[in-house]
């Protein structure tokens, strides 16, 4: 069995008295692409934010050989965990290049950063064309690419992607997922949160289905795509 990169045990998230995530356990192994699918409000984003230590939670989170549930969120990028937040979270008034530089904020290896920048530009040539442009003026799809590119600038081992298809035109969604596929093909471990279940399952090897704060199904993507419950509830068949 491959080594687990991140594992949650009985993870719970509460907002005031309301439980958004009610005790879920899952694992993402090294070099795996795993998705967390489910309807709006199922607790997917809360789960991802809890893993990235952006919101408080209870339960255990194992990352590599460490327990990270007590760590502050800003330390995780240094440990190789990069979050691409919901709604992209780009720095709207900074240029594309400045945004990418912020992705390497925690690093001091200038030569390596310059190399990574070239790699990101190679992967996302659109960003190179717009390097000097203010990020807030990019299209939604370009902003999503920028958010992914910024995360890659941190040289992560694990990429947490929160709804990369959100609010994008179908053509742009295709392009963004192409990037996700390319990054995955290079050996990146990815945990993908998506409402667009079909797309997500097509990219991932395994998936978890979340429903009102609980994981109700867990299987390989192929099995989930064939499952009658998934087909009825999430694939519109």
């Amino acid at each position: 069995m491959a080594q687990a990169l991140i594992e949650a045990l009985n993870l719970q998230v509460h907002y005031g008295g309301i439980a958004a995530v009610k005790g879920i356990s899952f694992v993402v192994e090294q070099n795996e692409i795993v998705c967390l699918i489910g309807a709006n409000g199922a607790g997917k984003t809360s789960t991802l934010k809890a893993l990235a230590r952006m919101i408080p939670s209870s339960g255990e989170i194992h990352y590599g050989s460490e327990r990270i549930e007590a760590l502050p969120g800003h330390l995780l990028i240094g440990k190789g965990m990069a979050l691409v937040p919901e709604g992209r979270g780009i720095f709207a008034r900074l240029t594309v290049a400045e945004n990418l530089a912020m992705g390497a904020y925690h690093r001091s290896d200038k030569a390596a950063i310059a190399g990574d920048l070239e790699r990101v530009y190679g992967l996302l040539p659109r960003l190179k064309e717009r390097a000097a442009q203010v990020a807030g003026t990019l299209s939604g799809g370009e902003q999503q690419m920028l958010a992914i590119g910024r995360a890659l600038m941190g040289r992560p081992k694990l990429l947490l992607l929160d709804e990369p298809s959100m609010g994008l035109a179908p053509l742009m969604v295709e392009k963004v997922f192409e990037v996700v596929r390319t990054v995955a093909a290079e050996g990146m471990t990815i945990l993908l949160v998506e409402q667009n279940a079909r797309l997500a399952l097509e990219v991932c090897s395994r998936g978890y289905v979340m429903e009102s704060g609980l994981i109700t199904l867990a299987d390989t993507s192929a099995a989930l795509l064939a499952d009658s419950r998934v087909r009825a509830a999430y694939l519109g068949e």
């Binding site: 990028i77 240094g78 937040p85 720095f91 904020y105 910024r150 995360a151």
Partner: peptide
């Protein structure tokens, strides 16, 4: 500009 993204960038 964006606090969550800032934190995720290691700030």
């Amino acid at each position: 500009e964006d606090e969550v993204a800032a934190k995720a960038s290691g700030i």
